[in-house]
Design a protein around this nucleic acid. Sequence first.
DNA 1: CGTGAAAGAGCCAATAC
DNA 2: GTATTGGCTCTTTCACG
Lengths: 155, 155
Amino acid sequence: MKGNELDDIDRKILRTLSRDGRISNQKLAETVNLSATPCWHRVKALEDAGFITQYAALLDQRALGLPETVIIEVTLERHDDEIFQRFGDALAELPEVMEAYLLTGEYDYLIKVAVSGTDGYERFLRQKLYKIPGIRHSRSTFTLRCLKRVHSVTP
Amino acid sequence: MKGNELDDIDRKILRTLSRDGRISNQKLAETVNLSATPCWHRVKALEDAGFITQYAALLDQRALGLPETVIIEVTLERHDDEIFQRFGDALAELPEVMEAYLLTGEYDYLIKVAVSGTDGYERFLRQKLYKIPGIRHSRSTFTLRCLKRVHSVTP
DNA sequence: CGTGAAAGAGCCAATAC
DNA sequence: GTATTGGCTCTTTCACG
């Protein structure tokens, strides 16, 4: 992969694989109107160039007993590097935390967690999040409904 | 799958598949200390019971030219069903929108979008988001760094 | 970029234990 | 639950246009 330009076929390959990561090379080649060999070469090139980072099974958080998604915004006490480092590391280790971002603006962090109801949420806060030192303030928002959720941007 | 209880092997299968969705049944069986046949039956049962919703290739948004992640909170003008319905539908169709939630609390929606820099962000706002009627107020926050991002909760 | 061929690996069902 | 068998498909690589 020389220039990072993708043509229409590459994009179609990526779109197809992002919907079905287990599609066989043959079927993939059919859907993008290519024969098997060049299709396979393109897929390998896309993997090597970093467009495809991982193949994964996506799990249903509801089936796993964590149906609620809560957004938590957090501000830390003091803004020194060590506090930030420790807090980020501690967050990443919590299994309930699905996403965590360092922010510009009013709050320092935005965290998305999966919990089981309000009691699961309270347990997470008291037993997990508030055990991490350095939190000055936090604001939680329950999500009522998920309107859209894609694992990858659409190429 | 009768009772929705997962044993340790089921959880290990799910964890392994969520890391590598293309692992062969043989290797999967090895890693969970099972022989191929029962391992395959468990995987099928987990799929049928809805624990595994999809197999997917995960794409790198940076490689695809949309390195920035922006969080946008939105409040709508009037809170009637049709406005909500239209707004949700319109959001879901925008390719930049990776996640969109209906919220409790101060704002109506939380949206996560992938854009290319501040100019890509401005283009998204003016040409896409603000074209959807009904927005009263919005607040954007750029993410500086992603500390954690998992596609599925850890079983 | 394409075809065709061919070896090897893995899938999956049907066995029997 | 394990082990084995066998037909089958898919993968992967090769030579070649």
